[in-house]
Amino acid sequence: MENRSPYIVDAPSVSVIMFKVLLALIPGIALYVYAFGLGVIINIFLASFTVILTESAILAIRKLPIKVFILDGSGLVAAWLLAISIPSIAPWWIIVLGTLLCISFGKHVYGGLGYNLFNPAMLGYAILLISFPLIMSQWQIPNNLIENNIDWLDQIKIIMNSSLLSKETIDAMSSATPLDYIKTQLTLHQPLNIIQQNKIFGFLGGKGLELISLGYLAGGLYLLKEKIISWHLPVAFLSSLFLISLIFYSIAPDTYASPLFHVMSGGSILCAFFIITDPVSGPTTPKGKIYFGIAIGLLVFIIRIFGGYPEGVAFAVLLMNIFVPLIDSLTQPRIFGHK
């Protein structure tokens, strides 16, 4: 006899949740393609392919149902997030290796869906950044900045085998990100307003990059509307990043970029709506979510400004993932009838 009350349920399945997250990424990706060409699509394709193969193999070894756990979509979400975080002109084996490592060590070592302690995508990104710092800091210049416009065939060539293209073409295609550029130029004692006159800077953040951020913002708002994510995390993260950069900006606008620049450049928006909102590796209590978001905002700023790496999102997220069990146990909400 089964006693399975409640007999009725009303919930979206895990797959629906994950595929809505993928859907929400589409506007950002579309703008990415508009600004930088098809490179990102190739990366997403490679990442999806790798993740399905890797997961199938691991699930087969672990004698778990393959179809169910591939269709839950969580692997794809991690793979897509990694694919849009790395430079779109990185060689093909970068994304393949990153996805392989992030899925196996970030997810399946811990038991697969629901058990990972760390955000798989950010784990993959951090491993890649530490192992291949040079490749990971060569970003593509937006299409409309390159004099002789390169076509998508060149992008495929550079991803698949960079020796097929002349060095001049590659150099013409790549540069540092605005955050990286500011960092290196500041060490040369250039004032910020001069630095920001470089062509790679746009209206709010990096040229082209700010557009993508807006796309992610739209997707994030969709997720909020669909109640896939709660408002706590993005609000806490963005406001803490904004406030801390505002404080430094108001003290010394010559050395510290404006708060809006910090919010709109790098992975800030993607982080706010898609990365820290990963339920498995994040805190579950409302208060915990707020502390988590605030801490990541501060860490991102500290690493960007004082640390050795130009972008701090991946490290900040991994660092705060370490704190999650402690945050959860210390921020238990007041239970009905308890003091």
Partner: peptide, 15 residues
Amino acid sequence: KWKYPVYNIQNTTGA
């Protein structure tokens, strides 16, 4: 006593 619930899919890690 209430017994330990039975799962529908096997997701314990045997291998």
